[in-house]
């Protein structure tokens, strides 16, 4: 791929093909329109160039023409809009069961952690054919996670999680760029995404020295910070039972009902009283400034792992092996 003069970016994800298709359509449409207008201008300008003895014919305009060249472009635009929106919908809707990567960006590096616990810096290893969802936040300024070969980009914002997903289709090494200007070494905040065959990936995964899965790390944080004294796994705790929380609706004290997603869990750790669960007192201490972004992602991963099946019938906070088996690549 490191040719000197490429004219087309590599296609290495499932979305890349649909983005390219619309792009090619638009290139053809634009080329046709520009050429049509250039030819018209050239013909008119030459055919009606100024000559002695010939005067311009005064024409006021034509409503028929005006409406035609308003409505026809508008109709074409609407086609492009719907087409573009469908791709966007695809890009913004991660499939269920995607493997999750937690990304913490800072000036000027990418820190990535797999669910299985492997940490990487400025490098991301993923297998071919598996849906991968990234949950990203920033420690300082706004960054943007951009992999041109996958045609995905998502700003990474301090103070909240944003997500993006992809499924790689072709093994290889691809650029990872920071696309949102972030200071001195903005252009140095680059890395690579290494797409591997599933078997190789499995070998890579087991070869690395992972210190336990993210959820397991989160669990030890959970115990260390004493969260378990209130968030017990029965109904007796002073805090809400966290089993089965993620992905479900939560009834708040002020009457609202909201969905418990990663951002909700994040906020409830940092500022517990902001969205208080109905029936509980605002007694939880504030963890803003006490946990790092990495510790926070581990806690979030742990809370997400607490599904009724995972925690067992007795409701004890034991964990099954959190590493989902990589799927076989389709096709």
């Amino acid at each position: 791929m490191f040719d000197n003069f490429p004219l087309w970016p590599v296609r290495a994800s499932t979305t890349a093909g649909s983005v390219d298709a619309l792009y090619i359509f638009l290139v053809l449409l634009s080329a046709f329109m520009s050429v049509a207008i250039f030819i018209m201008i050239t013909i008119f300008a030459l055919r009606y160039r100024r000559r002695a003895g010939r005067e311009a014919e005064q024409i006021d305009g034509s409503n028929v023409l005006e409406f035609t060249w308003s409505i026809v472009p508008l109709a074409i635009f609407m086609v492009i809009f719907v087409w573009g929106a469908r791709i966007f919908f695809l890009e913004r809707t991660p499939p269920r069961g995607a493997a999750e990567i937690y990304v913490v960006a800072k000036q000027w590096m990418w820190k990535l952690q797999h669910e299985e616990g492997q940490r990487e810096i400025n490098e991301l290893h993923v297998p071919v054919g598996r849906d991968v969802r990234m949950i990203m936040t920033s420690q300082d300024v706004i960054h943007s996670f951009y992999v041109p070969a996958f045609r995905i980009k998502q700003d990474v914002i301090p103070g909240r999680y944003t997500t993006a997903w992809f499924r790689a289709t072709r093994p290889g090494t691809y650029h990872l760029f920071c696309a949102e200007y972030c200071g001195t070494q903005h252009s140095g905040m680059i890395g690579q995404v290494v797409v591997m065959e599933p078997a190789q990936y499995q070998a890579w995964l087991t070869g690395g020295a992972a210190s336990g899965s993210m959820a397991a790390n989160g669990q030890s944080m959970f115990l260390q910070l004493g969260c378990n004294t209130c968030h017990r796994f029965d109904t007796q705790g002073r805090g809400p039972d966290l089993v089965g929380l993620f992905g479900n609706k939560v009834q708040l004290e002020d009457g609202r009902t909201i969905a418990a997603d990663e951002n909700y869990i994040r906020e409830s750790i940092l500022n517990p009283s902001a969205k208080l669960v109905s029936g509980f007192k605002p007694i939880m201490p504030v963890f803003q400034g006490l946990v790092s972004e990495e510790q926070l992602t581990a806690l979030v991963a742990y809370v997400k792992s607490l599904t009724p099946q995972a925690s067992g019938a007795a409701g004890s906070p034991s964990l099954i092996s959190p590493g989902k088996q990589p799927q076989e690549p389709k096709e």
Binding site: N271, P272, S273, A274, L276, P282, V286, Q288
Partner: peptide
């Protein structure tokens, strides 16, 4: 009062 967040 409900706990007030200093930042907010």
């Amino acid at each position: 009062e409900k706990p007030v967040d200093q930042g907010r």
